[in-house]
């Protein structure tokens, strides 16, 4: 599959536009936001459906509880705030009142990872995937661009159970098909290859495709897989790919601890282990900078993926 950039858009706008369309189709959908309506791109929904939009103020713990309660009559609450305030700040509320109480809440989190940029480490959560995937019954979805995020919003509404949807702030290449259908738990093979598997998620998927192109020029055939859902993980697709390539790398805008890399490593360790490298943040907090500077500094770009691929090939 060959991808071309249709435009540059932020994944949070994919969320906002998806939510607005979903609101038109399903009057059971309600949205809550903790004083970040504009940043979350929830204004369209708020304006079109004022009776189904709830401003909770800067009170995220209360927002999670209200969302859990609102499921009472079959409503589907979508909460919106930054990834940091969607997870770490309210972990106990999510754990007890949503996950353990089996409440059908969709936790939608923007500004995840380093690409939040200049605001710095307080807001750049790099632990959220790990936190959420540890919770029994939680589904963890990380789409890679605007179109995919928009599609994912509709899919998670149809899924009965708590979901964590992770997306980001900056405008990034929008390259996956318009009007695609998003399938929960399905990894997407974006490029077939035979030498090394690159499993990427979120903003790193585009970087993985760039890296694969450059690797081809070096005579290395890379298979690129978009892990759109961290949990449940598409184990079949991953095992099928690595049984062919016999080595792999993972790439994510997240801590190495608890992220995609460790998730996949766990899968392989319990099946057939292969040499593996992980492109991720290595036990550090972020800092201020532009998204591009930060991704380069923390080695989360195409260049880092190429380096990891060469290293893992040498271990084969």
């Amino acid at each position: 599959m060959k991808f071309t950039i249709q435009n540059h858009k932020d994944t949070r706008s994919g969320f906002g536009d998806g939510l607005f369309e979903l609101g038109k189709e399903n009057d059971k959908v309600v949205a809550l936001c903790a004083d970040l309506t504009g940043s979350m791109k929830m204004d369209a929904f708020a304006k079109a459906f004022p009776d189904r939009f709830f401003q909770t103020g800067i009170a995220e713990a209360n927002m999670m509880g209200i969302a859990a309660g609102m499921t009472i009559g079959g409503m589907i609450p979508f909460t919106g705030t930054f990834a940091n305030f969607s997870t770490g700040r309210v972990y106990d509320q999510i754990r007890q009142s949503i996950a353990y109480s089996e409440k059908n809440v969709k936790i939608c989190a923007s500004h995840a990872g380093l690409t939040l940029g200049e605001d710095g480490a307080t807001h750049q959560i790099l632990e959220d995937i790990g936190l959420m995937r540890m919770l029994p019954g939680m589904t963890v979805v990380v789409p890679c661009d605007y179109n995919q995020t928009k599609a994912a919003v509709k899919t998670i509404a149809a899924h009965n159970g708590p979901v964590y949807l992770r997306f980001g702030r900056p405008k990034v290449p929008n390259f996956t098909p318009v009007n695609q259908t998003f399938e929960l738990g399905k990894a997407l093979v974006y490029q077939e290859g035979s030498d090394v598997s690159i499993l990427a998620t979120g903003h790193l998927v585009w970087e993985a495709l760039q890296a694969a192109d450059l690797l081809t020029q070096k005579g290395i055939s890379a298979e690129v897989i978009n892990i759109t859902t961290i949990k449940p993980l598409d184990e079949t697709a991953i095992l099928k790919s690595v049984s062919k390539t016999k080595c792999l790398i993972t790439a994510e805008e997240h801590q190495l601890f608890g992220g995609l890399g460790e998730t996949v490593a766990g899968l392989l360790a319990q099946n057939t282990p292969y040499p593996m490298e992980m492109v991720a943040v290595k036990d550090q907090f972020g800092q201020s900078g532009t998204p591009e500077q930060l991704m380069k500094h923390y080695q989360l770009d195409a260049a880092a993926i190429i380096k990891a691929a060469e290293k893992v090939l040498s271990r084969k």
Partner: peptide, 11 residues
């Protein structure tokens, strides 16, 4: 946590 959930139900 309970009062927030009860509030959500009431809303």
């Amino acid at each position: 946590q309970g009062l927030s959930v009860a509030l959500g139900m009431a809303m």
